[in-house]
Amino acid sequence: MKKYSRRKLLQFSLISSVAGILGMDSRFAKALALMSTPSETEGPFYPVANQKDKDADLTHIDGYLDRAAGQYIMISGRVTDIYGKPVGKALLDIWQADANGRYRHPRDPNKAKLDQNFQGWAVIQTDDEGLYRFKTVMPGAYPASRTWTRPPHIHLKIFKPGYEALTTQMYFPNQELNKSDLLLGQKSVVEQSAMIAAEKAREGNLIFYEYNIVLDLLRN
């Protein structure tokens, strides 16, 4: 018999109560709840040195003349709860490697050249409708070990009082290295689909991606 956590049982109970009010079978009501975005390890390269510029444009550091090298991309999406309600004023903590696959971190062993013009870290908020948007570069792949190369990905932490804090990693579609990644490979097909952004458009040197995030409710 499958066992559920107390939090999941409470979630099912709430959905069933809503189903009763609406006159729906609880099995169908459960299907109305969205799957929360899968969590993932923070990794070893979360920024350790504070910086003044952590805005939504990672391709340019305030006060620098030059911009970051690489393929420019725009990431946008909406943060909602498991019932589809927008989560406004949620805090998004975002960090990633530059186009060379190098993190702005003193303990990154990658011998690739660090792009000094890449911001590497952003802290932004969703608007009242749960929408967010930031500009960055396509992160480069990098060796995690002698036999494992990590695919391009972006790290995110999402916080909002009343919701479970989420640490996850966003991946990109049509990346060959996705197939052999040891972390992404631990996820189910459904979970993987929730962690891979969707390409929406291309305009000049800019590629637009959509990545929606679902937070679970905080329960005692």
Rank of each mutant, 00 (worst) to 15 (best):
A97I: 00
V189G: 00
G88W: 11
I94P: 03
E199Y: 05
D108Q: 05
T149S: 06
S26D: 05
D127C: 12
Y163A: 02
T80Q: 15
A69H: 14
M74C: 10
T126L: 10
R102A: 12
L206E: 15
S17E: 11
S188M: 04
I94L: 09
L34W: 02
L183A: 14
G20I: 04
Y72T: 05
K111C: 07
Y132S: 03
A29E: 02
D81K: 02
M35P: 00
I213A: 10
A68S: 15
Q116G: 04
K157I: 03
T136I: 02
D66Y: 14
L9Q: 11
L177Q: 09
D115V: 03
N50A: 14
A49H: 07
Q186Y: 03
L215H: 11
E42L: 14
I94K: 10
L182R: 15
A122M: 11
E191H: 00
V87Y: 15
L156P: 01
I154V: 14
Q192M: 05
A198E: 14
G20T: 06
R146G: 07
V123L: 14
K111P: 04
G23K: 10
L14A: 11
Q175E: 14
M1V: 12
D62M: 08
S145Y: 12
E129W: 09
R78L: 05
Y64P: 00
R78F: 02
M35H: 04
I82W: 09
R146H: 09
Y163I: 02
G101P: 05
F12R: 05
I124N: 07
Y171T: 02
H105C: 08
E199S: 11
D98H: 04
A69G: 10
L215W: 13
Q169H: 06
K2L: 11
Q175F: 00
E199R: 15
Y83R: 06
P47S: 12
M170E: 05
Y209G: 04
P152H: 10
A201F: 13
T168E: 11
A19F: 06
Q125H: 15
I73S: 08
T149Y: 07
F208H: 14
S5L: 13
F28L: 08
D181G: 01
G20L: 13
Y64I: 01
A31H: 08
D25N: 08
E129D: 13
L34H: 06
T41P: 01
Q71I: 03
L10I: 00
G185A: 01
Q116P: 00
F28K: 06
T136N: 04
S13C: 07
L218I: 04
V87A: 15
A68T: 07
R133F: 12
A56G: 01
P173T: 01
R7K: 12
V123D: 05
Y64W: 05
Y64N: 12
K111R: 15
A112P: 01
D25P: 00
K179W: 01
L215Y: 13
Y211T: 04
N212T: 01
I94E: 07
Q186S: 11
